[in-house]
Write a protein that binds this DNA or RNA. Sequence first.
DNA 1: ACAATCTGTGTACGTTATACACAGTTCTAG
DNA 2: CTAGAACTGTGTATAACGTACACAGATTGT
Lengths: 264, 264
Amino acid sequence: MDDTADTALPPGLDLLWGLRERNRRGPRPGLSLERIVQAAIELADAEGLAAVSMSRVAERLGFTTMSLYRYVASKDELLTLMMDSVAGELSVPDDLPPGWRAGLTYWAKEQLALFRRHPWTAQIPITGPPLGPRALAWMEVGLRMLEDTGLAGDEKLGVISLLSGYVRGEAQLSMDLAAALQAHPRQATYGELLRTVLDADRYPILHGIAASGALDFPSEYSEADFDFGLQLVLDGIGVLIASRSRDADGADRQDGPGPPSDGP
Amino acid sequence: MDDTADTALPPGLDLLWGLRERNRRGPRPGLSLERIVQAAIELADAEGLAAVSMSRVAERLGFTTMSLYRYVASKDELLTLMMDSVAGELSVPDDLPPGWRAGLTYWAKEQLALFRRHPWTAQIPITGPPLGPRALAWMEVGLRMLEDTGLAGDEKLGVISLLSGYVRGEAQLSMDLAAALQAHPRQATYGELLRTVLDADRYPILHGIAASGALDFPSEYSEADFDFGLQLVLDGIGVLIASRSRDADGADRQDGPGPPSDGP
DNA sequence: ACAATCTGTGTACGTTATACACAGTTCTAG
DNA sequence: CTAGAACTGTGTATAACGTACACAGATTGT
C-alpha cells in the first residue's frame, strides 16, 4: 500500500488521476473504489457525515469493515475521494453568462446548490489546495469567468478562492444552524432572546437594534443572507478589477490589496 | 438538571448569564465550572480540540470523568462555555481607530489573533447567533466601528457577520492546511503538483498559471492571503456604505445588496 | 433526628478506526 | 505443470469515546 512514493500527490489523489498500479495476481476483486465511494456518499446524503463509518459503508455493500481497506488506505482518503466525486456534479453551461459579475454569480450559486445537495461536503476539512480532476475543472470554470478582467493569474486564483471560501462558509453556517435548531428546537426569536439578556448600559447599540424589533423573525438561514454577503464580496472584487483596469491606463492604485501570495 | 425551561436560552448559556440556580443542600462542590472550562481550554490549546475528551479534562483536574457531568450537561455545553470564555480575551482599545475602515481592520485582525492563539475555536460548529456575554460585547465593538456609516441596524449586523465569517473561515482554512501538512509532509509546491497532473487541453487557464511559475512557493497559509481577502471584503463594505450615504442625499441605489434578512 | 438533595465514583454499553493474522484464490516463474 | 508470490476478504483485538445509571457519603432544611 506504500507505492505512493513515486508521486508527491497527497494520499488518495493518485487514485483519482489513475496513477495507482493495478494488480495482476490474486482473486478478482468483488468490490471497487467507485462502489465504495458511491455508497459512502449515499450514506452521507441520507444520514449526515457522522453516519459515515467504515462499518456502515461496508454494511451497505454487504462486505465486512476491513474489506474496505483493500481499496482505501484510511477513512481520510475515502473522504477525499467523496469530495472530488461530488465535484463532478457541478455543471458547466455551454454558453457562459456575459461579464465577470454574472459569471461569478452563477459560479457561486451553482456551488451553493451543490453544498445544499450534499451538506456534508462543507464539513470535511480542507487538506490542501484543490488537486482532484473534477475540483480543478470547476476551478477552471471560475477562472474563465475572470478572463476579461485584466487580473493577473494569481489574483484570479485569489478571487476564486475568496469566493469559494465565502460560499463554503455560508453553507457550513446554514448547516450548523439547522442541525442545532433540530437538536434544540427554539421558539424565541434572536431579538427576543437578546432583550431578555442585554442591558442598555453595557450593550447600547445591540440593545437598540434588538429593541427596534428588526431581529424578530425566525432565525433560519435564508437565501437573502447569502445574497447580501455575495453582493458585498462581488462589489469588493469589482473594486479590485476597476483598479487593475486603471493600472492598465498607467495610473497607480493607492492603498489597494496586493496579490494573494508573495512569490519567490 | 431540567430547570432550563424558564429561559428559552440554548443549553449552557443560562450558565454564562448566571441564570442557573445555585444549590443549597448537599456536599460542598469540590470543582467549579470555571476550573473545568479553563482546564478544557488549556488542553485544547496544548493538544488540539480532538484531545478534549471528558476523560482527559477530568484527569487534568484530578477527578473522575463522570464528575464533570454535575457541572455541565454535555460535552457540547462545555464547548459552548469554552467559546465564550476565550471571547473575553478580545481587547477593546480605549481610543477607537478613526473611520470604519481602520476600525473594522482592527476588529478583524484582533479576532484573527484570537483564532491563532486558540486554533480550536474555529473548529467548534456554530450553533446559533452570538448569545454569550463576552461574544456580544465583542459584537458591540464591531457595531461601534460602523456608527458613522449611515447603515441601518440590521445592515450593520450583516456587515459584522460577513466579516466575522470571513475571519473564521480563513482561520479554519489555515488550521486545516497546517494540520494536513504536518500529517503528510510535502516537498512539492502547488505549481509543481499541478504541472505533473494537468494537461493544457482540459485546463488551459490553470495550466497557464501553473506554467508561469506563479505558484512555485511553499504552500503555507500566509498573512498576505488573509490581507488580500480582507481588503476585498472591506472594499465591498465600502461600496455598500457609499451607496447608503448616496441614499441619504436622496439618490437611489441601482443594483446593490438588500438588507441581510427580510423582517416580518 | 430525619429526610431531602446534592457531590463524586464505579460500572456498563455501544461505537469508532485500524493493526494483525489467516484462509482461500489467482497468476507467474521455473 | 507445479511451486510460490501476491492478492482479496474475514475475524479478532485494542484503546478510546460520550454518557446512562445506580450508589455511597456529605450537607442542609425542617
